[in-house]
Amino acid sequence: MAGIIGYGVSIPRFRIKTEEIARVWGKNGAHITSGLGVKEKAVASIDEDSATLAVEASRRAVLMAGIDPQKIGAVYVGSESKPYAVKPTASIVADALMAGPDLMAADYEFACKAGTAGMQNCLGLVLSGMVDVGLAVGADTAQGRPGDALEFSAASGGAAFLVGSKNVIAEINCTYSFTTDTPDFWRRQHAEFPQHAGRFTGEPAYFRHVVSGAKGVMKKAKTKPEDYQHAVFHQPNGKFPERAGHMLGFSKEQLQTGLVTPSIGNTYSGASLIGLAAVLDEAKPGDRILCVSYGSGAGSDGFDITVTPEIKNKKPVVSVKQLVADKQYIDYGLYVKHRRKLKSL
């Protein structure tokens, strides 16, 4: 058996309301809030980046698992907002956990699904016996060009998952990925902000991959939507995952616990993993969870997960609900300062 032995989440305290961003750009805030299904988003402060979010989430995961960090044999950090273009975040995380130096480490990039790609690698390494415990992190301080539609949702946050074979709280029964070359969203080398193909990011990109990823993993696991207590889909906004769930035959109730984007925005590499953490916070032994990420460019990783009785013995250091509730609102001026959106910053 291999699966999740501990997890941790980090969400910055600052929030900006969708209506506040809309006010600055002369848009209808109420209309955008309901259209996107995102009422506010988490904003990293000036001294936070994807590395600090990854470290905070990973420390919580290690504390929850109650393991010696030296047991960690692999660290993979997925992000599309790395503090360094060249120099790994994974080595920063490994040293901040005192997990090194005897470990494998690398950074992954696959838009919003690099964290789940790391989880698949850790699962493979644990199942093959190459490592005892692997750490997969998805963390982002997502960029959105001022005035662009992305700015309403691009948020900051991260989640870390420890994968091992002892004291597993949620077994990963199987995983499946669906990958195609689909240029729906990208950021070129040296470009500060990503570009996207507007509505093209919907049907041929998000929905095709998430639905195919979900169908693929359910076929492999021989399951149907009604076999799951919870389903978590990548959540670029509050509406896409609901629609994907509807297309696949999942009810709103199955999606509800893992849908956090309406309160914190799209945390990119962290999004589906924070959703999975929110579900595990409340899951009971025997619960079955479907988790499907999505990364532009494009691909989806699907996971079929069963919660074990061990979950009763391990509590998260801080729950996703607590992190979502711990907030301080800032206005657009402070948001611009903290996200360094002025050239002089």
Binding site: D47, E48, D49, A51, T52, V55, E56, R59, P83, Y84, I92, A96
Partner: peptide, 20 residues
């Protein structure tokens, strides 16, 4: 304790992380 960025020399310089 929290893990934070302490300072960076410039946008292209090395970043010092540490405790706050």
């Amino acid at each position: 304790v929290v893990f934070r960025k302490i300072y960076e020399d410039s946008h292209e310089g090395a970043i010092a992380y540490g405790y706050k």
